[in-house]
Design a protein around this nucleic acid. Structure first.
Lengths: 291, 291
DNA sequence: CAAAAAATGAAACATTTGTTGCGATTGTTT
DNA sequence: AAACAATCGCAACAAATGTTTCATTTTTTG
């Protein structure tokens, strides 16, 4: 019997030959290797949503005698990891070539991104987000605008929001002239605007138009005094520090996702039901690929 | 009950007060912390040369309810990244207060997002990203595809990329039928595909089409064996853990931004000049608002 | 020294774990 | 349509795990 230096590769190469349920199990194992090392087989089966017997069968299918052998393999893999980590750090320090300059840049990016996210979930911002949720829940229509680099964040919110509420409108100019969707906006509506420097004219004009119609604004921006946030009811000022030329919208996206999570959590059972219905509709349109 | 950030200290401070046999056990645990995380209590007792009951008594002596709690602590210590994540999750669950529930949820979200990003910049993923950059630089055309919740990440890359390279094409179906942009794709091109479960049919078909034309694929996905990543040349598997119903695309977005940053850094002066030109064009179109 | 207190290890206990067997279900072929 | 094989999940099983009990030994104390 051939011994594999890493069972992971064996699992990947044999993946296609496995039965659907075993694929499900293999997939979970590939995605969560540490759980193999730390949790019990039954717990792992439960997490992967397969009966325990499937795991046992998977062992046989990939040529592993017993679960213990499999687990041992993943345990030693877990113990070896810190070693290679340290070794890599040493290598990075010793040689000063082009390749590890890239690695340094990536490490620096990672730190910055984490800082940005941490700042976005400070107590102050958190309470503002909760406040924003209240406003969203009471609005008649919820408009979302964000252009250029801010478009992903706006789209993200609009996409998720529409799965459980049907009063969200993404202002992106895809339906005619930009801002056309805003016609008829009133003080009972709400505009969520995303944007950082350099501020894009369309976004700012959308905000101003909404303000003129006495529509409250929730601004996700890079400054309290940015043209987007200046007159906003709720200001969510997120950091967009970045190692590169472009600003980072990671924190903005994260805040958008957090808003959705909050809304769903507060919406309770009803929100979950709506999501289920939306998913069924998507399935009916054959949007998803069945596993 | 006082919670210690590290039970190790508790073990050391109480060491003198323990009975001889318990000291023997405590000594072994302090010397072999990983064994606590990986082996069974009986096995540990055997290794420490004490009866199992001594371990149970030691638990009570240092104020730990059960062996499971003790083991959990050492397990999360072993995976130093999500250190107190499990504990935090448990706390969030235990407190059923409506007023604080939102804040706890946000804290939990923040923690998870940071974990996701940390994992995305692991040594393994970092080297894959550098590898991906090489492929991007040598490709004739760079196609980017991502649907549904993955669209923001795809858009983000395409938007930034087009500021310094003019061979990027976002496959989003805005120009006629979906996938129409892919016509004429060859082995000299490159497809960057973003997507997580549930996999959207359009994305998967785009990947398959590219593969059929022998076009290499860079996959940003949630699993090594996802239909998007399975046959990909370079697999960037990012975590999408989330406290809410939806998966998080924060890490995917962050990876996209990092790729752009890498490309610009490697592109040197030439890339910066192109960016300057692009900005001037946007200014000419009166896109930005002058301060 | 004797009585009380503490500590110890073996065994018993209920629980959990990994594995196996079997009937039911599914999908394919004749 | 019937027959076959593959796959699946439930339930039973034996082995192990964590905990408790209790009699014995050791230590402390008056």
């Amino acid at each position: 019997m051939g011994l594999y230096s890493d069972l992971r590769e064996k699992l990947i190469s044999d993946y296609a030959k496995l039965s659907p349920q075993m694929q499900k199990a293999a997939r979970y194992i590939l995605d969560h290797p540490n759980e193999v090392a730390l949790r019990s087989m039954r717990a792992l089966a439960g997490a992967a949503d397969v009966p325990p017997s499937t795991i046992t069968r998977l062992m046989g299918a990939i040529g592993v005698e017993t679960w213990q052998d499999f687990r041992d393999h993943y345990q030693s893999r877990l113990l070896d990891q810190p070693a290679s980590y340290a070794q890599r750090a040493r290598e990075t320090q010793s040689v000063e070539n082009d390749a590890n300059r890239d690695e340094h840049l990536l490490e620096s990016i990672a730190r910055t991104e984490i800082d940005n996210i941490s700042a976005a979930f400070s107590p102050e911002l958190s309470s503002r987000m909760i406040e924003a949720c209240g406003a969203i829940e009471n609005a008649r229509h919820v408009f979302i605008v964000g252009c250029g680099a801010a478009y992903p964040a706006a789209y993200q919110f609009a996409y998720a929001y529409r799965l459980f509420r049907d009063n969200g409108i993404l202002v992106d100019g895809h339906s005619g002239a930009f801002g056309d969707e805003l016609r008829g906006i009133t003080r009972r509506d709400l505009l969520i605007a995303v944007g950082a420097k350099p501020y894009i004219r369309d976004t700012v004009q959308a905000v101003r138009f909404a303000r003129d119609q006495h529509c409250p604004v929730i601004a996700i921006s890079d400054s309290d005094v940015s043209p987007i946030a200046l007159d906003a009811m709720t200001k969510l000022v997120v950091r967009d520090h970045s190692q590169s030329f472009f600003q980072s919208f990671t924190a903005a996206l994260s805040v958008m996702q957090a808003l959705v999570a909050l809304l769903v959590a507060r919406g309770g059972q009803k929100a979950l039901q709506r999501i289920a219905v939306a998913e069924e509709q998507l399935a009916a349109f054959d949007t998803y690929l069945e596993d």
